[in-house]
Write a protein that binds this DNA or RNA. Structure first.
Length: 302
DNA sequence: CATGTCCCAAAGAGTCCACT
DNA sequence: AGTGGACTCTTTGGGACATG
């Protein structure tokens, strides 16, 4: 996550500059600049290039670096170094759809207080709009929308590169993403990458024949409701995956599906599936005729 | 019930210095 | 220019409580 000093340096990089020159310009110790530049590089917001004795730092050719440049051009007076900090970026990542503070805190795993502070700051600059107690990213700030999307996409790809080269992202919002892979990532040391969807079905004594493995990147603690929704997200219009999800919902007795569905902007879809369970009547093309679903369900139970 | 505020502790970021 | 250590300051988390 970019932090104030790093973003201040990014601002100065209208032209490539060396570490010592940046230290002079900003009146900071060269080691401070050095650390900050390293973090910028790690995040795809700077690039280093040796030039004889010096190391030239310049803006890289990444999508989020361009978005950030656009913001600086469009709103030169915006204090980006204070606005786009760690928690702000996480909060913005959650607000592609309107949510209240409590939901946003639950979605990001941040403290309610932290979310509230970030939102007050962002609202003050019109980056976030408040309507009927709910907050959402101001769509008119399109460069900010781009920055948030591109930033998190880059972060996800960085992360995945270390894990599995065949990984494909199926869903993403902010720092959280669902991906599938054929290879077993193995290193369980990655504590923010947790198995999910059909990959955890055996925990609930449900059987699925597949070699594809699904994982979710989050720092939140996942619940069975998350596993169910991830199963749907594999292919939301596909009756098979919806059936798998329903089987898991039934089997686990999940009680908070509707609420969790809201976090994933899947409220309508979940409502429709719950209605299907209640009425035992096919109510959309995303589900199987009830008798076929029952057959599938009994074939899965171990 | 959701939100805003306050406090305090812990974690993390930011800084500079000495050394390489 | 980069690294590691020591230090300070800021941000964050969590509990408690008032407000609406």
């Amino acid at each position: 996550m970019p932090y104030p000093t790093a973003l201040t340096i990014f601002k100065e990089l209208k032209r490539p500059a060396s570490i010592s020159r940046l230290a002079d310009m900003l009146g900071l110790d060269h080691s401070t600049i050095s650390t900050a530049v390293s973090s910028l590089v790690a995040e795809g917001l700077a690039e280093k290039q040796r030039d004889g004795k010096k190391v030239l730092v310049k803006r890289p050719n990444t999508l989020h670096a361009h978005s950030l440049e656009d913001i600086l051009k469009e709103y030169p007076r915006l204090p980006v170094e204070n606005l786009f900090t760690n928690s702000s970026m996480e909060v913005l990542g959650a607000l592609t759809q309107p949510h209240n503070i409590t939901d946003t805190a639950a979605m990001t795993g941040l403290n309610r207080h932290t979310v509230s502070t970030a939102l007050t700051k962002l609202s003050g600059y019109g980056i976030v709009l408040k309507e009927k107690g709910r907050f959402a990213l101001n769509k008119r700030h399109r460069y900010t929308v781009d920055l948030v999307n591109n930033y998190w996409r880059y972060a996800a790809n960085q992360r995945l590169r270390d894990i599995a080269d065949d990984a494909i992202i199926l869903w993403q919002r902010g720092p959280e993403f669902l991906f599938k892979t054929q290879t077993d990532p193995g290193h369980t040391g990655e504590k923010d990458i947790q198995p999910t969807a059909t990959t955890v079905f055996s925990r609930y004594n449900l059987q699925i024949i597949t070699t594809t493995r699904y994982y979710f990147h989050t720092k939140r603690r996942m619940r069975v409701e998350d596993h169910i929704i991830h199963t749907i997200l594999i292919d939301p219009q596909n009756p098979t995956y919806n059936s798998y999800a329903l089987a898991l919902a039934t089997r686990s007795g999940a009680t908070d599906l509707l609420n969790t569905g809201r976090y994933y902007n899947m409220e309508k879809h979940i409502e429709s599936l719950l209605e299907y369970l209640r009425t035992k009547e096919k109510n959309s093309d995303a589900v199987l005729p009830w008798s076929e679903y029952m057959d599938l369900f009994s074939s899965m139970v171990v």
